Amino acid sequence: MKRQIDALVRGAVAYEDGLDRLAVAPAAQVDPALFAALNEAAARLFGGGWQPVELHRAVVRRGGTDRPLLGRAVIDAVAAHLRDFPRRGVDERWLAQAGELDATVWWSADERYVTELAAKHRRDRISAIDDLLELLTVLVHLPKIEVLVPPPGTAPRRSRKSTVDERLLERVRALLAKAESTGYPAEAETYTAKAQELIARHAIDEALLAGLDSAAELVPFARRIGVDHPYEGEKASLLSAVAEANRCHTVWSPDYGFTTVFGFDADIDAVDLLYTSLLVQAGRAMAKAEPPGGKAGRARLKAFRQSFLVAYAVRIGERLARASELALAEAPQRSDLLPVLRSRDEQVRETMARVFPRTVRGRGSRVDSREGWESGRDAADRATLL
């Protein structure tokens, strides 16, 4: 039965013929084999660098929107995989992602998973099998990627972690929430200055303390941040601009819809938080400024949005770079800080080169709408920065 399933998902037999054979075969044979194939495919990917949230996102991106059972089954595969390992042997970031997905073993027995999955989501058994086969087809064609978080069963990361203080994050989130809700640019600018001041001072203090502490074991890491369509390339440019201004470096992987951000944990936390907020602000500003759509204006609307996001990313990059320069100029012990920042940047670059020894410089996005470009720059000038 396992060979029949494998041949079907790899295209060695006609899909409809293969599905019909599974539909008439005894459930006692099909269901355990299908569940085992799902676990085997997921385990290969988890061991090959994929993290729970990333795999779920990749599946949804490749068809799970129209077939929500695919995303749900991936979450179940996370739960099934995780139960094979003691929690102390699983990296805390892997556990956190499983918790974010609410991955739990809810089914009564593995051999009953297909039947209970169909019942839980009010589907007939054949439809559930069809969806699981579609999921397996997606999984078997995903390649291994760079291991950024130790998979379950390997040694969790034990080195000291640099993080943004939670109390600081709460204050910054509160400022961003106010900035995202206000309709007054001057008010947003007030929140901009305060939030930027908080994060910039913390980042500089953290870098200086790490450089002066001979016992510190802080090392750079990487995190993959999802970049959603449409206009993925333009959004990736915005993420790159945010990362560069916060002492991080990025590699954009358009085939999988994520950008790998390299840096120290506290800096990556700031990038993640800021990028998310700026996307919200960009989307809101673009919706207000864009021209009417409709069939006649569809091409114009697309050009406007692309140009808007390109200009927004460029202008945000300029503002962030200037803010970072000002924070550095006003920093105490500046003579001690500069060598530390240079050393940390070298470490980040070395880590990126080790993970991605070969990268290709992407082509810049086209700007076909002057109206969109000018609106994007205006929106960036009003955006709240951390």
Results as ranks from 00 to 15, higher is better:
12 A>T: 03
13 V>P: 00
15 Y>M: 05
15 Y>N: 05
16 E>G: 09
17 D>W: 12
18 G>D: 07
21 R>A: 10
24 V>N: 06
29 Q>V: 04
36 A>H: 08
37 A>L: 06
40 E>H: 14
46 F>M: 07
46 F>K: 12
47 G>T: 01
49 G>D: 05
51 Q>M: 13
56 H>G: 07
57 R>F: 10
59 V>T: 06
62 R>P: 02
63 G>Y: 10
64 G>Q: 03
70 L>H: 04
75 I>A: 12
75 I>V: 12
79 A>Q: 10
81 H>A: 08
89 G>L: 11
90 V>T: 09
95 L>W: 02
96 A>W: 03
97 Q>D: 06
98 A>V: 03
100 E>R: 15
101 L>V: 01
106 W>P: 04
107 W>A: 13
111 E>P: 02
112 R>C: 02
113 Y>H: 12
115 T>H: 10
117 L>Q: 05
119 A>F: 07
119 A>S: 14
121 H>M: 10
124 D>Y: 13
130 D>A: 15
131 D>R: 14
133 L>R: 14
133 L>D: 05
136 L>N: 08
136 L>G: 06
141 H>A: 14
143 P>D: 11
143 P>Q: 12
144 K>I: 00
145 I>T: 12
147 V>M: 11
148 L>Y: 08
150 P>A: 14
152 P>Q: 13
154 T>A: 13
157 R>T: 08
159 S>G: 09
162 S>C: 04
164 V>G: 01
171 R>N: 04
172 V>G: 07
176 L>H: 14
178 K>F: 03
181 S>E: 08
183 G>Q: 10
183 G>H: 11
185 P>A: 15
186 A>N: 04
195 A>M: 04
197 E>M: 09
199 I>R: 13
201 R>C: 01
203 A>E: 12
204 I>N: 14
211 G>C: 09
215 A>I: 00
218 L>H: 13
220 P>H: 09
222 A>F: 00
224 R>A: 04
224 R>D: 02
226 G>E: 09
226 G>S: 13
227 V>Y: 11
228 D>A: 12
237 S>E: 07
238 L>G: 02
238 L>N: 04
240 S>Y: 01
244 E>R: 15
248 C>E: 05
249 H>W: 04
250 T>G: 09
251 V>C: 03
253 S>V: 05
256 Y>W: 11
257 G>I: 04
257 G>C: 07
259 T>V: 15
260 T>P: 06
263 G>F: 02
263 G>D: 02
264 F>Y: 14
268 I>V: 14
273 L>N: 03
274 L>G: 05
279 L>V: 01
280 V>G: 08
283 G>Y: 11
283 G>C: 10
284 R>E: 00
287 A>Q: 11
291 P>G: 02
293 G>H: 11
297 G>Q: 11
298 R>C: 02
299 A>H: 08
303 A>N: 07
311 A>V: 00
314 V>K: 15
314 V>I: 07
318 E>H: 14
319 R>H: 09
321 A>S: 14
324 S>W: 06
332 P>C: 03
337 L>H: 07
341 L>F: 04
342 R>L: 10
342 R>K: 13
346 E>K: 15
347 Q>P: 03
350 E>P: 00
354 R>M: 12
364 G>H: 07
366 R>N: 03
367 V>M: 11
369 S>N: 09
369 S>C: 10
372 G>T: 02
373 W>N: 06
380 A>P: 01
384 T>A: 15
